[in-house]
Design a protein around this nucleic acid. Structure first.
Lengths: 171, 171
DNA sequence: GACCTAAATGTTATAACATAACATTTGTTC
DNA sequence: GAACAAATGTTATGTTATAACATTTAGGTC
């Protein structure tokens, strides 16, 4: 049985290089504005994270990073990730122990992560109504939020459509 | 400097034994209805989880379990947790790699977890409006959800009130 | 009760994820 | 160029979770 192709999962369904370029340019600009150092390591790690729209694990990043910097250790990666997360350039996906580039152009770091089980891509959304209702609920509960993590696992639109075209696909 | 007391965090702020009794009785009943076995190990692990309203780590459970069953291994705990989660009796708190007893009396397993940084207690809430808006948003996004994890970290009402009374308390 | 089967548990080992602690280098400021 | 802070290097270890296979237990059938 031939491995099914998933054309919609390929990087060709959009101009991914532009995603990467945008992300890196934004990161450079933000770090400059804030007077923090987007060092070579941090820049390279961010670039590796943006290789795809899939969440990537720290040790996967390490494997990808070693060809660039053969002395890299887990610490190297985790420190870069800590910096990138502190700057809001990367999100941790708690339910996957993995990391993803942040697309919040508005620097609003309250978002839903829609995690597709089929293609593994993670979509970030910031639906006002949901977040408003959530804030209201937290006020009602007397709870002061410091951070919010909303992670939804399921099947994304593209994969659902693909499933209709290829009904023999599992799940 | 004396360690500050947190009377509101003590098990005496409510009749915790009743929480435990309810949880165990419900679990027994549900498992009987479903024809699944709430074995001794599973029952004991569930009881240990309900020792508090704090999320508990698997290896903490193991330490608590060893006095009962000295041959217990990580696998023992993880297998019990897998069963309890499959039955909806326990939730995994993704952002803590920890576990908490489920209080969803209605067996609706879509909930917010409010995780207090001060007292570590986890409150479960199922606010209709938030969940409705979320469902609507997912429909809009063409995303078919299989599981939802909404975890909010911050300070709970009781701890906020306590902070007002004892303003010298850190965070 | 003997037998079968599936479920549960026991056992060993290791994989996967993450941080602590301290040494060294680099970049900035004076 | 001395002093300091930030970043990185290095070694070791802590923490979380699962794989793989053996054995025991519970429940049904004859």
């Amino acid at each position: 049985m031939a491995k099914p192709t998933h054309p919609q999962h390929s990087p060709t369904h959009h101009d991914h290089q532009q995603c990467v370029d945008n992300a890196l340019a934004t990161a450079e600009q933000l770090c400059a504005q804030r007077g923090v150092q987007l060092t070579a390591i941090r820049h390279q790690v961010l670039e590796l994270i943006w290789q795809s729209h899939k969440a990537v694990k720290a040790y996967e990043l390490l494997d990808r990073f070693k060809p660039i910097n053969s002395t890299a250790k887990p610490t190297t990666i985790y420190r870069a990730l800590d910096f990138l997360m502190a700057q809001g350039l990367v999100h941790r996906v708690e339910s996957l122990n993995a990391f993803i580039g942040c697309r919040c152009s508005n620097h609003n770091h309250e978002q839903l992560l829609l995690i597709c089980k089929r293609c593994q891509e993670v979509e970030e959304r910031t639906p006002e109504k949901v977040l408003t209702e959530l804030s209201y609920e937290l006020t009602q509960a007397g709870f002061t939020a410091h951070s919010k993590s909303i992670e939804i696992h399921g099947i994304c639109r593209r994969c659902s459509e693909q499933a209709v075209l290829l009904p023999s696909q599992p799940n």
